[in-house]
Design a protein around this nucleic acid. Structure first.
Lengths: 162, 162
DNA sequence: CGCCTGTGATTGCATGTGCAACAATGTAGG
DNA sequence: CCTACATTGTTGCACATGCAATCACAGGCG
């Protein structure tokens, strides 16, 4: 399905700037936001995102596999991450009544406090390092384009609460 | 410099879609491109990028620290990556004449062949998974915005060849 | 010249992550 | 009911990566 002259033509300048720019922007953003959270609250960015998703969920608890999908981690990666969060007292595991295989991760009071404390740091970081560089129309364009790239934001497939 | 009501206001829907979309798009793109390269040529994405930058450089060789910056890796990370590439015969280390501390990584013939073979896979992947979702104007907007976020594409600071 | 500070590259160690294998449980079909 | 397959979460292992310490050298200053 590929005519060589078309498919293997090198990227033009705009294409290259967009692709490399995306890589650089992502790397820089994640690094800065993670460093900010870590230094101000001792909380890595991935941990913050878990707490954030749990807080938004009904009953502040989610199935492990749903959390994994939300934070873009493998199931095993999330198991270890929740291990650390549980050790620090920010979440607790709750067995699932209607599915004995499953487990919920539930936000504890300490976890909610930590999240509240860290949220302003994170929001300021996102605004300063990311949002401030976009005009509203650009932001909407970017959002649409990213959704086309990544597909719909997958409404929890695991135990979709109807 | 921060009125609380402004800085800690949660993200509106567009802001959230843009931010999470960026994370999701990046994760998906890197995962797909890496998997494609790995399965078709046994070459991880990071390795490919090193070969690519070396090929574009004058004499197909670059200082280690310049390569590290180009591929967004720490110096130690790059040392190990070049170890692997040298073991596979794709690059070789060349000592630097005018700075005995420094070392060049230079692309070998095998490395160039590997790069040529893998490039069409990579280009097709970028076009299919990334570029195809953008119109030209959107792409230019994205490129500009990413450069504002990440700053200028740092013209090699280490041994800038004048 | 001899020293001292700065830089390039490497190495030891710790860590976060994914894959594959596993056990426990759910679900469908005979 | 019982069997076969799918799914959930965890674990063993390998691996890529970053930080800090280290070594070798460059460049400046006394």
């Amino acid at each position: 399905m590929a005519s060589l002259s078309n498919e293997t033509r090198p990227l033009d300048e705009t294409e290259l700037r967009a692709w490399r720019g995306l890589l650089r922007a992502h790397a820089l953003l994640v690094k800065r936001l993670d460093a900010d959270l870590e230094s101000a609250h001792g909380l890595p960015l991935t941990s913050y995102e878990v707490l954030l998703h749990l807080d938004k969920a009904e009953g502040c608890k989610m199935r492990m596999c749903d959390v994994a999908e939300s934070v873009l981690l493998s199931r095993s990666g999330l198991t270890r991450l929740v291990d650390r969060l549980e050790r620090d007292g920010y979440v607790e595991r709750v067995s699932c009544a209607d599915d004995a295989r499953g487990a919920y991760a539930r936000l504890t009071d300490a976890g909610r406090s930590k999240l509240r404390a860290a949220s302003s740091t994170h929001l300021e970081g996102i605004r300063e390092h990311f949002l401030s560089h976009f005009e509203p129309a650009e932001l909407a364009t970017l959002a649409d384009a990213c959704e086309r790239v990544a597909g719909p934001s997958g409404p929890q497939s695991c135990s979709a609460q109807t």
